[in-house]
């Protein structure tokens, strides 16, 4: 019976897709994008091309199937590079400046005049002092206080910032490490901002 069920599923699937997915050929979407951003310099071309993970996330409106979810997390976890010295925690003060800064990678940011920022406050509440925070991501107030400073907890936060898809496939958050938005040192500073007991996040 199994092959028949599978065959039926294959027949039904495209119709179900057509109901909530636009009937647009993906290749055409890509060609349209290429044409609309044709002034992009050659080294910006990769920005126009979604990788496998982004393709799957976009096609499923960020709700991948269970199988895709597993595969994405495995694939993305493999991209994470760890600090050479095994230390995940930097300077929370530097981290706070990074969290405030939205500088970098916009087409008006060249040649770079500042390091790239993480712009964390754009989407997350993080400290009591900063009332101008966004709500696309969850509040991170007291993040470290709730999790402690055990090495495994620090490593988990590092991984979450480096590549959020490794722990939650199709997360809306940028892959700051994998996409080379932030350096390993910068990510360590953000880990400190979240986890250091002295950080304003944990006051």
């Amino acid at each position: 019976m199994k092959p028949i069920v599978l065959a039926l599923a294959a027949l039904v699937a495209p119709a179900a897709l057509a109901a909530d997915q636009p009937a647009v050929d993906p290749a055409r979407v890509e060609a349209t994008v290429k044409a609309a951003f044709r002034s992009a310099p050659p080294d910006w071309q990769p920005r126009l091309i979604p990788d496998e993970t982004l393709k799957e996330c976009s096609a499923t409106d960020n709700s991948p199937t269970a199988a895709q979810f597993e595969a994405i997390q495995k694939r993305e976890a493999a991209t994470i590079r760890y600090p050479d010295d095994g230390n995940f925690v930097g300077d929370w003060k530097k981290g706070e400046r990074l969290a405030q800064s939205g500088y970098g990678l916009r087409f008006t940011d060249y040649p770079p005049r500042n390091p790239n920022g993480g712009n964390c406050f754009a989407c997350h509440q993080m400290t009591r002092q900063e009332v101008s925070y966004g709500t696309i991501g969850p509040s991170l107030l007291g993040y470290g206080k709730a999790r402690g400073t055990a090495p495994e907890a620090l490593k988990t936060v590092y991984e979450k910032i480096y590549n959020p898809h490794a722990t939650f496939a199709c997360s809306l958050m940028p892959r700051f490490g994998t996409n080379k938005v932030l350096t390993v040192e910068q990510i360590k500073d953000l880990v400190a901002l979240l986890m250091d007991p002295a950080s304003p996040v944990n006051q």
Binding site: L54, R175, N179, V181
Partner: peptide, 9 residues
């Protein structure tokens, strides 16, 4: 709905 670019947006 299409994600791309360095921020995956």
């Amino acid at each position: 709905e299409r994600r791309s670019g360095p921020f995956d947006f």
